[in-house]
């Protein structure tokens, strides 16, 4: 937020309370998506008999969003709960080798039995143990690469940037043992920077996951259950975000009688109308099931108009309802003189 000594005004477009609260809850929603997609990829890998490529795209976009968040935070001199600054942390390597070996034994002795070709490959106990050792080493190598990518480089960069920004010599973080014990950052500057870029991560997922879900919907022979869960998880995360910002009195908390607020409402209504029309006129007829009933231009156009009105007006009313709820909540939380 810009502040000028010549004027007592801060940037009128940004209310710091709204900005910090929306970033905080968007960041929580993003963290939830990180856990969900990470766990679901592993679970699906073991349980679903589908091509992994169908749902790996979400994980790749998520990983890019996390990298963006960590490195942008580092550029502002904020680190993200570091684990180590040493890429050859022997204690961590030993720990990951041990966990990897246990995981490898689990895979070679139990999971491989579920699939015939793996069962025949891991046929004897020495081969199973050797396979587990290889998996352990690979697991450790991948883990240490991730530590290097997500911890070592960004945190060293954050220390260097912080030193440049303050003009002071580089600060020393606690040693590795203390870092591993440390679970949460309580520095409000670091938290707010992390939240800001995690919120950008959530917005990236909001743009990507619905589009990829829609695209997969039209790919024949792809089971919907294999990828639809990420979309539902995203909707749950957005539901949490909406509920929290309403509880904090944030949604629609823009200054009343503000011309830009009226313009925003009109453009919101128009975009909902356009989206409803686009979906029903252009996208629905691409679906095989619906194409049979939407065979003429007139039927498509009629459905387009009807959906635009239903979707556009419906969402507009819903947004206004949430706006009113948030305003009521804001009045309750504030010592209002209105």
């Amino acid at each position: 937020m810009e502040y000028s000594m010549q004027s007592s005004k801060v940037d009128p477009q940004i209310d710091e309370r709204i900005e910090s609260l929306t970033n905080k809850y968007a960041s929580n929603a993003f963290t939830f998506m990180c856990y969900y997609i990470g766990i679901s990829i592993v679970v699906k890998g073991f349980t679903l008999d589908v091509n992994m490529l169908i749902y790996w795209d979400n994980a790749i976009v998520l990983a890019l969003a996390v990298i963006y968040m960590i490195y942008r935070s580092a550029d502002e001199g904020a680190h993200v709960t570091p684990t180590t600054l040493n890429p050859l942390n022997w204690k961590l390597i030993k720990g990951t080798l041990f966990v990897g070996l246990i995981f490898g034994l689990f895979v070679t002795f139990f999971v491989s039995g579920m699939e015939e070709r793996w069962d025949s490959f891991f046929s004897t106990i020495p081969i199973k143990i050797a396979g587990a050792a290889v998996i352990g080493v690979l697991f450790s190598a991948v883990f240490m690469f991730l530590v290097w990518l997500f911890d070592v480089i960004p945190n060293k960069r954050a220390l260097r940037k912080a030193s440049e920004l303050t003009g002071e010599p580089e600060a020393e973080l606690p040693d590795d043992e203390e870092l591993i014990k440390q679970s949460h950052i309580k520095d409000e500057r670091i938290e707010s920077i992390n939240d800001k870029y995690a919120a950008h991560g959530l917005y990236a997922l909001l743009a990507y996951i619905p589009l990829s879900t829609m695209a997969k919907w039209f790919i024949p022979d792809v089971p919907i259950y294999a990828y639809y869960d990420a979309f539902l998880a995203l909707m749950a995360a957005c539901g949490y975000y909406t509920w929290k910002v309403i509880r904090e009195g944030v949604v629609g908390d823009t200054p009343e009688k503000n011309k830009s607020s009226v313009r925003a409402k009109v453009s919101q209504l128009l975009s909902f109308l356009a989206f409803g029309f686009f979906m029903s006129f252009l996208v629905f007829p691409m679906d095989e099931g619906m194409a049979a009933t939407l065979d003429s231009f007139t039927s498509r156009f009629t459905l387009g108009i009807a959906m635009a009105v239903l979707f556009g007006v419906g969402f507009h009313l819903l947004m206004n309802f949430m706006d009113r709820l948030a305003r009521k909540r804001a009045e309750k939380l504030s010592d209002s003189d209105q």
């Binding site: 005004k9 309370r17 009195g249 804001a330 003189d337």
Partner: peptide, 9 residues
């Protein structure tokens, strides 16, 4: 340059 509710809070 903030909202009324922010001052109230």
């Amino acid at each position: 340059g903030v909202t009324r509710q922010t001052i109230g809070m």
